[in-house]
Design a protein around this nucleic acid. Structure first.
Length: 460
RNA sequence: GGCGCGGUGGCAGAGUGGUUAUGCAGCGGACUGCAACUCCGUUAACGCCGGUUCGAUUCCGACCCGCGCCUCCA
């Protein structure tokens, strides 16, 4: 029995898909005008773990994650770059796919793009206009009349009066109410546009997700997820549009990831305090970044700092250290570890709780190896790798994990030669020479591990 | 101002009405030529004040502090 926190009800609920054994999930993806940052990685990782776990539990998951490839920021950026907007979006989509692959994010089942759904978007807007939920304005825009939708605010717990009174919302003369939002934007001369019953234009931000999600997954589906800052207005507006258009419940469970922070502030584009995934991957191995993200609950905020990333690296190393030089069993039966792992994950995808099971397994393996119980160690190793996979961790060859990355101006052969020279010196009790070699390697980021079987190395 | 979330040991981070989270770091020991790795042991916590209770870090209330959304943002 899986329990999931639902933003809509503000509590954990027993997860029950509409169709037994199948899960239909939609997650708001990227607006592709720039490289992905750590905040994106957080959402990507969170829902990757959700998907992996649901599949582990036997569900067939239809995971749809959209790409927003047309909006103001894209057009602005393209113009600033003196680049065709399609060239820009294609470039960023490719970069995003590279980042995802490095972080071990499995591709979604489908990845619809807004520009591929223009006719569906127009059709949905038409329905909203016909039903009286939306109105074309004098300036060529089409707006959703928020006061026509009774449940407006039910996701974000906001009252319409407060929103209108708050009035930080840009007041446009064309809008009937400041809280109304745009469904179709009239094109300015020379802008990319599509023909519509209301003239040349392009979709507003929110409508694309309503159109793509309901087209791909049906009028009602199981899970809708996204970043914390999408809760309002984006998701609130999606509900209004979709439920107004279909007259059916839009989504059963709303899931929102926690924010990534830097120096106690949310990492965001507007604050400019963001680190792109690729910047971070220049400094830390991808799996360490992933471990860092998975080591806190998906709903809580995480603080990005070098200390935290380095600690994640040390901790992940411990896990890999237990697997190093060990041949995992071909297969291992279900164990108590599996059950404890699942108990943690069943409780709203408690990945930090699940990680404690991995650490316990690593300890067991280390003890077995110390005592020469290689078979027991091998079995536990198989379990550790099996459970690690559900979190997208521990799938590398340990040697590759330890030796990956830059060891500047030292080839593996050189390192091996130095190790041999050191071991020769040790044999001759020339310990000052042996230590000199070890220190020299350490200075270049290579740490030596002596054991009965010999000496191995890893990056420090 | 409105709405929401959170304050756990040096740090990161789960969780529970009464019993060890876990990891990193520290300390003592084993292993080692010395280290590293690993193992054994160990220190240390629940923002503040009331209330409920036999018993609260865990439930309730007040307070203090921090964060997020209310404008584009994952």
């Amino acid at each position: 029995m899986i329990r999931v926190y639902n933003t809509l009800s503000q509590q954990k609920e027993v997860f029950k898909p509409l169709e037994p054994g199948k899960v239909r999930m939609y997650v708001c993806g990227m607006t592709v005008y720039d490289y992905c940052h750590l905040g994106h990685a957080r959402v990507l990782t969170a829902f990757d773990v959700v998907t992996r776990y649901l599949r582990h539990r036997g569900y067939e998951v239809n995971y749809v994650r959209n790409i927003t490839d047309i909006d103001d920021k894209i057009l602005q950026r393209a113009e600033a770059n003196n680049e065709d907007y399609l060239a820009l979006t294609n470039r960023m989509i490719q970069a995003m796919h590279e980042d995802e692959a490095r972080l071990g994010i499995q591709p979604p089942t489908a990845e619809p793009r807004a520009t591929e759904f223009i006719s569906e978007i127009i059709a949905m807007i038409q329905v909203l206009v016909n039903k009286g939920y939306a109105y074309p304005a004098a300036n060529g825009d089409v707006y959703f009349a928020v006061n026509t939708f009774e449940g407006y605010g039910k996701l974000s717990k906001k009252k319409l009066e407060d929103l209108v009174a708050g009035a930080r919302v840009g007041v446009s003369d064309a809008k009937r109410s400041p809280a109304d939002f745009v469904l179709w934007k009239a094109a300015k001369p020379g802008e990319v546009s599509w023909a519509s019953p209301w003239g040349e234009g392009r979709p507003g931000w929110h409508i694309e997700c309503s159109a793509m999600s309901t087209c791909c997954l049906g009028e009602t589906f199981d899970i809708h997820g996204g970043g914390p800052d999408l809760l309002f207005p984006h998701h609130e507006n999606e509900i209004a549009q979709s439920e107004a258009a279909t007259e059916r419940p839009f989504v059963n469970v709303w899931m929102h990831a926690g924010a990534v922070r830097v120096d106690k502030e949310k990492m965001s584009k507007s604050l400019g305090n963001f680190f792109t995934i690729r910047e971070i991957l220049e400094k830390y191995p991808a799996e360490v970044v992933r471990y860092f993200l998975v080591s806190s609950h998906y709903r809580s905020q995480v603080d990005y700092s070098e200390d935290n990333l380095e600690e994640a690296g040390r901790t992940l190393s411990r896990l890999y250290q237990s697997l190093r030089g060990l041949v995992p069993a071909e297969s291992a039966p279900e164990t108590d570890s599996d059950r404890r792992f699942e108990a943690a994950m069943d409780d709203d995808f408690n990945s930090p709780g699940a990680l404690t099971v991995l650490h316990a397994l690593a300890s067991d393996i280390n003890v077995s190896r110390r005592d020469g119980h290689d078979e027991a160690a091998g079995k536990n190793a198989a379990v550790l790798i099996r459970l690690g996979k559900v979190l997208g961790l521990l799938q590398q060859d340990p040697e590759a994990f330890f030796k990956a990355g830059a060891v500047e101006d030292l080839t593996a052969d050189t390192i091996e030669a130095m190790i041999q020279a050191r071991n020769q010196a040790r044999k001759e009790k020339n310990f000052s020479e042996a230590d000199r070699i070890r220190d020299e390697l350490a200075e270049k980021g290579v740490v030596l591990d002596d054991s009965r079987e010999g000496t191995s190395w890893r990056r420090g």
